[in-house]
């Protein structure tokens, strides 16, 4: 398949690639996709920012980007990493946040700002978290570490369901 090889065209393809662990989110929704450029030689350079240092999904994201772009006729693709600035959940788009909630995952609040020494939190941080299933705000934290590095585990005391929350970083 071939089409017009433009940066906008390649961007459209790359932006539609979904996160391997949260497939309701595209890489663009997640804020991982930083840049897509097509050089004069037709070579595509995609720039992504890792979510967590050890996130095993990063390798899959790179592979998926290369394969989806190849499907659309972009044969020469390199995926670069941009480490600075570090990824923040603030980069998740409004559409991505809606998609999370629609799929039963609570969307993150604003990421904490770190200026100066970081205070130790010896009690769980109180966050107003609405249950993505029943909407109740009667929820409690079960664990700051959930099914993946990026999620915390909560429980709704109204409908008694457990749910994941993308934790703010």
């Amino acid at each position: 398949m071939s089409g017009v090889r433009t940066s906008a065209g390649a961007h459209e393809v790359a932006a539609a690639v979904v996160d391997p662990e949260m497939p309701m989110l595209t890489l663009e929704d997640l804020g991982v996709l930083r840049d897509v450029e097509v050089g004069p030689d037709g070579r595509v350079t995609v720039t992504i920012t890792p979510t967590y240092s050890g996130c095993p999904a990063m390798a899959t994201m790179r592979d998926d980007l290369v394969h989806r772009l190849a499907d659309h006729g972009y044969d020469e693709v390199s995926v670069r990493v941009s480490l600075h600035p570090a990824w923040s959940t603030d980069w998740i788009t409004p559409r991505g946040r809606r998609a999370l909630v629609e799929h039963g995952i609570s969307a993150p609040g604003p990421a904490p700002r770190h200026d100066g020494p970081i205070a130790l939190q010896l009690t769980p941080t109180r966050r107003v978290v609405d249950c993505p299933r029943c909407g109740s705000s009667e929820t409690e934290l079960t664990s700051e570490f959930g099914s993946t590095a990026c999620k915390a585990l909560y429980r709704c005391t109204a409908c008694l369901e457990s749910f994941d929350r993308v934790k703010e970083i």
């Binding site: 967590y52 480490l83 990824w87 570490f145």
Partner: peptide, 12 residues
Amino acid sequence: AIAAKAVKELTY
């Protein structure tokens, strides 16, 4: 850049 990322993780 590696350190700035690690700050977020180590806080948890």
